[in-house]
């Protein structure tokens, strides 16, 4: 009956998520200060992925969505990564 197909996330949870995201931002800025050479991109991207995962899971309520939607989101990201990797088969060996 009721229209509440969506999960209600408590304010407190949202606040905690923001805190975590801020922490990640701080971390990623600090890490670039340290010279990690080629790994600095990797670290920056890993942190960005963690942030994106958190935003999707909690802010976008993906945690409470159907398995189907979760799979679709995963599929889109995997597809994109595959496309980039395959493009680099050309560029890395040229």
């Amino acid at each position: 009956m009721a229209n509440n197909v969506s999960h209600t996330t408590e304010y407190r949870t949202l606040g905690k998520v923001l805190l975590f995201l801020m922490l990640c931002t701080f971390l990623t800025i600090t890490v670039t200060g340290i010279h990690l050479g080629p790994f600095s991109v990797t670290v920056a991207l890993l942190i960005a992925c963690a942030k994106a995962y958190t935003v999707m899971t909690y802010f976008m309520h993906l945690k409470y969505e159907s398995l189907l939607l979760k799979l679709l989101v995963g599929f889109v990201f995997v597809l994109f990564v595959l496309i980039i990797l395959i493009t680099f088969i050309d560029y890395a060996f040229r």
Binding site: I86, I89, D90, Y91, A92, F93, R94
Partner: peptide, 10 residues
């Protein structure tokens, strides 16, 4: 068009 050899066979 000048892709790398590896990309071509892939």
């Amino acid at each position: 068009s000048g892709m790398s050899e590896q990309a071509r066979w892939f």
